[in-house]
Amino acid sequence: MHRFANPARFLRIAAIVQPWAMAVAVLSFAAGLWFSLLASPADYQQGETVRIMYIHVPSAWMGMFCYTAMAVFSAMGLIWKHPLADLMARATAPVGAAFTLICLVTGSLWGKPMWGTWWVWDARLTSMLILFFLYLGYMALADAFDDPERGQKAANILALVGVVNVPVIKWSVDWWNTLHQPASVVKMGGPAIDASMMVPLILMALAFKAYWVVVLILRTRAEIAAAKLRTLRMAQVHAAGQTEVELHG
């Protein structure tokens, strides 16, 4: 496998995809905000706080989606030693962590007025918090070693081990009694959300997914450049012992 062939192809595809992803992200986020704050009804039970759902639920989806993507990239990195897969896993981690954080905080802001508490240690909330720590652990491990390859390997293994948490999050509300209510959108017999509330939910989910594409491309580009820099610097150091000073200056 040519070491730089795939990153080069990635950069070519990324250059085409990026403006489109950005356009989708901006447009669907604007439309999503319009619908979620203005053009959608209040809930019959929860009143206006239902608007928190349009941020909270898509963020939760993204938290789980990004982790799954990260685990797949990590597996590709481990098995096929695919350098691009490692870089894409690294690029996804902060996005997933950000969405998981948003999910946790908005859930707290929603739980206080509706449930009467900011936080409870039920299975759904706890497994989501574990997801957040898995992201933090992955990012810390990936950068913890002086030898980037060793750190990447440890981080990849953590990502794979942690993937068992994803189905636990998804089905925690069905397996155990929780304070959190069961799934509304993805369930047997169709969603339990009125169509007028599905519109902002889907728009926000689309906006977040497009945002992930944009940031994934940006961060992967940065990782590719950083990796090339590392190899160039090392090669030059090898080639001419003393050039290091000049390069860093």
Partner: peptide
């Protein structure tokens, strides 16, 4: 000593519920 509300998974405007 503590009471928490648990809501169900249904979301709809008041008119639809009525």
């Amino acid at each position: 000593s503590e009471v928490l509300a648990k809501h169900d998974e249904n979301y709809m405007p008041k008119e639809v519920a009525d």
